[in-house]
């Protein structure tokens, strides 16, 4: 019997949870705020769904109801991507060692 592709995706999901578990435990507590902002930025990869909704429609109309939701989601996700990565970068620039400051 063939395995449902869902099972493969589910396996990836479960394995990623474990990867996430070990990776996040190794994050130093002083970087927990950047961790939150960067996870926030990467979860905006949901933008791929928004782009598909906006562009993959076969209808001639550029503004079908589903593509409008796609456009809206693109704006939201774009705010997050740029905002999230840039603010993380800004924070990380501030973390300096003792010797750096002189």
């Amino acid at each position: 019997m063939e395995i449902d592709p869902f099972i493969f995706r589910f396996s990836i999901f479960i394995l990623s949870i474990f990867v996430g578990y070990y990776v996040v435990w190794s994050v130093t507590p002083s970087l927990h705020t950047p961790l939150m902002s960067v996870t926030n930025a990467i979860s905006s990869v949901i933008i791929v769904g928004a782009i598909i909704a906006a562009l993959a429609s076969t209808s001639e109309n550029d503004f079908s109801s589903s593509s409008i939701f796609g456009y809206l989601a693109i704006i939201l996700a774009a705010v997050n991507i740029f905002g999230g990565f840039l603010v993380t970068q800004r924070m990380l620039q501030m973390y300096k060692k003792k010797k750096d400051k002189k």
């Binding site: 999901f13 949870i17 990867v19 996430g20 961790l35």
Partner: peptide, 16 residues
């Protein structure tokens, strides 16, 4: 969406 990048990211962020 059957999208691996989203599944991996979602799991990472969720567990984080």
């Amino acid at each position: 969406l059957e999208n691996t990048a989203l599944i991996i990211t979602g799991a990472l962020v969720g567990s984080s």
